[in-house]
Design a protein around this nucleic acid. Structure first.
Lengths: 250, 250
DNA sequence: CGTTCTCTTGACCAGCATCAAAATTTGTGG
DNA sequence: CCACAAATTTTGATGCTGGTCAAGAGAACG
């Protein structure tokens, strides 16, 4: 479905921060404050560095695929990732997007329940499964951090269940635009700018809609003066209050 | 929405098992093997007993309500519970059903994200928030068990997201009938019998459908010989293989 | 610049929702 | 146990939201 495009856009990475995301130097890692690694005190970072390995992906490249045996866990240190599952006939559900600081395979499954693909150039730390499990067993604060992350993930999943089960197309798109900016700590949002590193099709498959419906709904929001388009992948929310009403939760 | 019905059907409880679910005697609790309490060794059960309190609910009674401050966590020891959230205009999403052994408030929220109501007579153990938090801090195996439960809950939530985002009405109902029996360890399912302690409306609000669509879909499954009706709240799956195909996942 | 991919817009359609009413089940009181 | 009332379920008729099909406009890349 998604073609493996080639694109070496290293600028976004270096522009992001002067200290490179790198397991060799966890202490200087720009993603650490947003990551599960923040639970490990500076003095013990070597333990983390010892089992981490840096992975770099170009746009479209998979970090792992649905059905593959899970041999590691991943911490995203830069870029954005799409998590998706397929039904046998090709219908796709985007299960979520992961940004800087997000941890994949919280629940340490034997087999990956979904495919993870880079939406833009991505760096991630890979922790080999066995050694990571051993580290968790040894360091309780890591397990506590994992539980906190799992709780967050559950709350988000439940918000998505409400969205998919009971919201209209307009409410889904509005909810998405409100929620997305808060998900990426590497791109702190300024005055209502929403960065959309994914395609309309990705949004549609995330929101249980079609790409045409997403496009029409965004056009409607523009026409109604709720958002304005800065570029194809960047919107500005001009009426956040109205957008919140349209999103429709309490 | 749900009226507080009065019904003291104690028989289902005693019929369920000879050893009463009771915190005073955790060692004899029939729900313990299915519960998070299984993580606490027999020798230390007093610690659990000390902070537990038994709650009994008649059908329709709430265990807690969406928006209420969360002052405790609950372990269901008998019966079935409906978890639901409301949109301001009254649309309802049933977030799930909880059965014997299920633990509510895994993520220890400050405010309950949903309402929990008894579908039938229910007994539960209530753990006061503070004291439970203290016990977790003290006993690591409890935290490990919570993480394992949270992982399970995440996997289930993700299955539901796929269902709500991309499945047809027929696929949703079929998936539901396949999944439900495995959720209630207190009623081990014999040869494809599915117990449905919830109404059509509850199923509909769980599956993102209307009660009419659920009813029509069940009628269709009956007409096609995939299931047969034993009573209004009990079906028998006569063609499990065909049902699995209709459910449509890999 | 031309090729390709993505996005937008329009016309039409289908699956499921809505509205309505009858059938069945459950609960209540004699 | 029966009769009646209330709630739930089933079934039918009709409508609407969002999906499908199609074509053209705009970006991105070589």
């Amino acid at each position: 479905m998604a073609k493996t495009a080639r694109l070496s856009d290293r600028d976004t990475l270096t522009a992001l921060s002067t200290c490179a995301p790198s397991p060799q130097r966890c202490a200087q890692c720009s993603a650490r404050p947003f990551s599960i690694c923040a639970a490990v005190p500076d003095a013990d970072l070597e333990q983390l560095e010892a089992i981490a390995e840096t992975v770099r992906l170009e746009r479209g490249a998979p970090l792992f695929r649905e059905g593959d045996p899970a041999t590691g866990a991943y911490n995203i240190t830069a870029g954005a990732v799409r998590l998706s599952r397929l039904l046998p006939d090709g219908r796709r559900q985007v299960m979520g997007f992961a940004f800087t600081g997000d941890f994949l395979n919280l629940d340490r499954p034997d087999v990956h329940p979904w495919t993870a693909e880079a939406l833009e150039p991505v760096t991630a730390c890979r922790f080999a499964r066995r050694r990571f499990d051993a580290l968790i067993a040894e360091r309780r604060e890591l397990e506590t951090a994992l539980l906190a992350r799992a709780s967050q993930a559950l709350a988000l999943a439940n918000a998505q269940i409400l969205l998919l089960g009971r919201k209209t197309a307009l409410e889904r798109v509005a909810s998405f635009l409100l929620r997305l900016p808060g998900c990426d700590p590497a791109h702190p949002t300024q005055d209502g700018v929403v960065r959309l590193p994914m395609t309309r099709s990705d949004m549609a498959d995330y929101l249980g809609l079609t790409l045409e419906t997403v496009s029409r709904t965004l056009s409607r929001l523009k026409r109604d003066g709720v958002v304005s388009q800065r570029s194809i992948s960047e919107l500005a929310v001009t009426a956040p209050d109205r957008l919140a009403v349209l999103a429709g939760d309490l």
